[in-house]
């Protein structure tokens, strides 16, 4: 009996410790964003909201935010358009080298960002040399690269949704007079909606927060928010960065809570 109780305490303790470890930086960033003094030091001299104003008036941050948003939205949409058919093919058809293709599509998720960035950088230069089309540092090049990190999320979450999918409802639709396209649009897609929504959310967040790969690919005057923050940190360490980070955390958290109301994320991830 005592051993069981001890085990439970130990387990709860370990879980609490891990949670604390994850939350600690968030708590400090949040706290720091409200410090009054410019050089972070403890204890704080007082509290203020000035750094939020500073972040909101920082042109590189605003431009970066807009660019990151654009890139994340477009690459998420392209990632879905490519990842959903790929998942369908992988789950539904015996394609040659199926497991290999599946691993390949998930690879960008486990590949170190620096490696991915270097590889994409070299590739884009080669493409530019070969075709004379300005790919390097272009918006298109950045979006293409970000699509690469969105695809694994789509493939992973959509194949999971499709694996538990009862094919007979598609047959029922066809039996009732629906052609293949109508069946896909009216029956298949709505049935895997939780997976799609989760894929879109995680793909978006991954793209929005991507730093390592983007570092190689941004061009002059075209900087994403994480890079803008990094560049700011090279010169200053005032809490503006903490305020900008907190705004991001709040936005992403809100997106997750809203999404969770419609599809239970814990069920698909």
């Amino acid at each position: 009996m005592n051993a069981v109780r001890f085990g439970r305490y130990a387990l709860n303790g370990a879980a609490g410790l891990s949670l604390g470890f994850i939350l600690l930086p968030l708590i400090f960033v949040t706290w720091l964003a409200f410090f009054r003094q410019e050089i972070p030091s403890f204890p704080p001299e007082g509290y203020s909201l000035q750094w939020f104003t500073a972040a909101a008036n920082n042109k590189p941050f605003i431009d970066g935010f807009v660019l990151s948003l654009e890139v994340a939205v477009v690459s998420t949409l392209i990632g879905l358009a490519l990842g959903v058919p790929a998942s369908l093919a992988l789950v539904r058809h015996r394609i040659p080298l199926g497991p290999g293709v599946s691993t390949l599509l998930l690879l960008p998720l486990v590949m170190p960002g620096i490696v991915l960035g270097t590889a994409t950088y070299v590739f884009q230069i080669e493409v530019e040399i070969a075709t004379q089309i300005p790919v390097m540092g272009s918006l298109g090049g950045l979006i293409a690269a970000h699509t690469l990190v969105v695809i694994p999320w789509v493939v992973r979450l959509v194949t999971a949704s499709l694996a538990g999918f009862d094919r007979s409802i598609e047959e029922a639709a066809q039996n009732l007079g629906a052609g293949p396209f109508t069946t896909f649009w009216r029956v298949t897609l709505p049935s895997i909606r939780p997976g799609l929504v989760a894929a879109a959310l995680f793909g978006f967040v991954t793209s929005f927060g991507n730093l390592e790969m983007s570092l190689f690919l941004v061009g002059p005057g075209r900087t994403t928010l994480p890079i803008a923050i990094l560049q700011y940190l090279e010169w200053k360490i005032d809490p503006t960065v903490a305020a900008a980070s907190l705004i991001q955390i709040v936005l992403i958290g809100a997106a997750m809570i809203v999404t969770d109301r419609y599809v239970k994320l814990s069920r698909v991830v």
């Binding site: 007979s168 029922a172 066809q174 039996n175 629906a178 052609g179 049935s191």
Partner: peptide, 20 residues
């Protein structure tokens, strides 16, 4: 003919109702 042009109503063993 493809299934959607056959006009035969099928009741599936699993019922296959559209869940959404």
């Amino acid at each position: 003919l493809p299934p959607w042009k056959r006009h035969c109503g099928l009741v599936f063993q699993s019922y296959a109702l559209f869940p959404h």
